[in-house]
Amino acid sequence: MDYNFQFNVIWRNFDTLLDGAWLTFQLGVFAFWGGALLGLVGAALKTYGPGPIRFLVDVYVVFMTNTPALIQVYFLYFGLPEVGIRWSSEACLLIGLTLNAGAYLTMIMRAGFLSVRKSEMEAGEALGMSLVQQIRYIIVPHIAKSIYPALANFFIVILVMGTSVGALIGVDELTGTAINLSTVNYRWLEYFTVIAGMYVVLTFIASIGLALLGRWAFRVKARIF
């Protein structure tokens, strides 16, 4: 191979890359938790809501899961200004990713709603719980525990694949930062090699964090690899 790797220039800009990684991490966390909240509401409405509401949830899920996240974010960033709504690129990315994650998480959490033991719900009802209280005290812990691995995997998907969409609308998350920096000195390969490593470290940290959270809060023995 003739290519002569020169990493010096990368280390000089490493602080900027770290800032990008931090933004990526924040976007991933907020989009995931926002999406988790949407998913919980979506799954609850899909399970217990009246017919028309269930239909609306289906439309939302089908629309958001069957179109690319990139298109959804583009729609917010380039489409909304046409009707006079102007959000920053970060806001468009975060809202787009949250809506997208909410649709996937509606489907994932729906599995949790369907697999909760009916007898536990009945016990809750007999103890005087309302449906919302049954969801809160019985279904949510059940979901957190039983589909924890699926949730944790999905968080990684948003963290890596979801947030990098931001590069295309000018968000300075990790990928976007690397693209910006490399246009200055054309060290594409070096930058992308380094941020690939940073993504691995980021997901590794996130995985350990999730595993510890799962173990502490839900008695789940999650595998990290």
């Binding site: 033991r117 536990e120 009945e122 016990a123």
Partner: peptide
Amino acid sequence: QYNLFQNM
């Protein structure tokens, strides 16, 4: 079947 809350 007791119906205890398994996660508590």
